[in-house]
């Protein structure tokens, strides 16, 4: 089937099967920043923004995104770079497999919450698992990124 979408503000038509998941379609179309961590919505690694909201692309059918807007980290390069600089300053980078999905969720949070506290930030981001960092340095970097505005 054909699915018309807007990916990173560019109109695209995906050719896919009705049962295909968005994660696999996006990777097939070379959006390789979108990655698989688990198979059942429980790690956050495959997060993309669908109409501005973070969703797990491993569990969203491509067929269901007809007419919608998708943003991957390729679409928020300037914001990812700003966040990335704070990650660098705080030593919050480790493997980074989940960093694009975290950047997208942080970006969505910035639009969703007004001046969130550290506790609110943690609650918002709890679905983004990380096995490398122990989270604390990520959170320091994210608070600084939010304070930039």
């Amino acid at each position: 089937m054909l699915v018309n979408v807007i990916v990173n503000q560019e109109t695209k038509t995906f050719v896919c099967e009705p049962g295909d998941y968005l994660l696999d379609t996006l990777r097939a179309y070379n959006y390789l920043s979108v990655r698989r961590g688990c198979d059942n919505t429980s790690c956050g690694v495959c997060t993309v923004l669908l109409n501005g909201k973070p969703v797990p692309s491993c569990s969203v059918l491509t067929a269901s995104v007809e007419g919608k807007s998708i943003i991957t980290v390729e679409g928020i390069q300037a914001e990812a770079e700003k966040l990335g600089r704070h990650f660098g300053d705080e030593g919050a980078d480790q493997c980074g497999y989940c960093n694009p999905s975290l950047a997208l969720t942080v970006y969505a949070m910035k639009n969703d919450l007004f001046q969130p506290t550290e506790a609110e930030v943690r609650e918002y981001l709890v679905g983004n698992l990380c096995r490398c960092t122990g989270y604390i340095q990520q959170e320091r970097a994210i608070m600084k990124y939010l304070g930039d505005e």
Binding site: G44, P54, L125, G127
Partner: peptide
């Protein structure tokens, strides 16, 4: 609702 998994799941 707030206590269910992560925000990305709660969005779908």
């Amino acid at each position: 609702c707030h206590n269910i998994m992560g925000i990305n799941i709660r969005n779908i």
